Amino acid sequence: MQFGIFTVGDVTPDPTTGRAPTEHERITATVAIAKKVEEVGLDVFATGEHHNPPFVPSSPTTLLGYIAGQTERLILSTSTTLITTNDPVKIAEDFSVLQHLTEGRVDLMLGRGNTGPVYPWFGKDIRAAISLTVENYELLRALWDDEVVDWNGKYRTPLQGFTLAPRPLDGVPPYVWHASIRTPEIAELAAYYGDGFFANHIFWPSSHTEKLVGLYRQRFAHYGHGTPEQAIVGIGGQVFIRPNSQDAITEFRPYFDNAPVYGHGPSLEEFMAQTPLTVGSPQEVIDRTLSFRDYVGDYQRQLFLVDHAGLPLKTVLEQLDLLGGEVVPVLRKEFAIGRPADVPAAPTHASLVAAAENKAADDKAAEA
């Protein structure tokens, strides 16, 4: 099972000091966070994509390419890449290049985004969000899978005799996760292609995530990719950790109360009771995270949000020390207990290459 961090890259004033980092400070802090993720023994760092203030990650592959040059084993991903407003040709090119630069330690998470104005900024209509997602992903798959692509769709100019350059590393495209907070059509899309499904799992109660993941597992099996238990699932979560539970709550409360997304709404206690947000001791984070398996089943990737709402870099790095030193080692051990042998591990470039080679050998044997 993979564990890691995802960031949305918000530039938010620290409510305890009133000071907001500059955009430059936030970007350089993100690099420091990613390097720390590797240092403490986590597996994945993922960045969001936003094109408006108060966010800074408008060019995820640029950021990930820079981080790749300063890390050695970290899997670099997105959370998310906007499949609706990005040109699929550019997505395919950017991630093929990133694959080569990282020796394959890259995947991506596709989503529609949650900022309405971004659609007209890129010449798209938000009312076509779902159909844009379906058509653009169909083209993206073709660009990675086929040497020569002839394409005619509704939302972009046709392609005739187009060949992607560079081709994916080892002939195997990056693994794709489809992310959704609330949309069953995205679970259906992931299931249809046999791709991974990532449930953000931050703002909604567990019953909502259970239904969405359950739908994906059911449809994954329906399309013949394996049993429901063999579907590839990722889960989001957000935590704030201190050795003492009450210290964690006291320290995090002003950040929660003033956060751009959920501030000035439910109390911290109400939000923790109604969603997976966990603020407390390492053991409380362990216990809460282990409970996710009760309603989503055995899954492959757990990403935590730890750097939002104006938290200073020093505090974020302390969170990573606690995650890497006290939380994740226990989670790795506990999640392995009772895990059925037929539940697959999280996909990696190496495992995808091996699967492609096995399939090619099987196909050759069948022809003989």
Rank of each mutant, 00 (worst) to 15 (best):
G4D: 03
I5T: 09
V8R: 05
G9C: 04
V11I: 15
D14H: 04
P15W: 02
T17R: 07
R19M: 11
I27A: 11
V31W: 11
K36Q: 14
D43L: 05
V44I: 14
A46G: 15
T47Q: 03
E49L: 06
H51W: 03
P54E: 03
V56I: 15
L63W: 00
G65Y: 02
A68W: 00
T71Y: 01
S79P: 07
T81S: 12
T81M: 12
N86W: 13
L98T: 08
E103P: 03
M109Q: 08
T115V: 14
Y119W: 10
K124N: 10
A128D: 14
S131V: 13
E135G: 11
L140R: 01
D150Q: 10
Q160F: 12
L164Y: 01
P168A: 06
D170L: 10
G171F: 05
G171D: 05
G171T: 05
P174Q: 06
Y175I: 01
I181N: 11
E185Y: 12
E185T: 13
A190R: 02
Y192M: 10
Y193T: 08
A199E: 07
N200K: 08
L212N: 02
G214M: 08
Y216D: 06
Q218D: 14
H222D: 14
T227N: 01
A231R: 01
I232T: 13
F240A: 02
I241E: 01
P243G: 05
F252A: 07
Y255N: 02
N258Q: 14
V261W: 11
Y262W: 15
Y262S: 13
G263H: 00
G265D: 04
P266C: 02
E270L: 09
F271L: 08
I286D: 00
G297A: 09
D298K: 12
D307M: 10
L311T: 06
K314F: 08
D321H: 11
G325V: 08
V327R: 01
L331V: 00
E334K: 15
E334T: 04
A355H: 00
A368C: 03
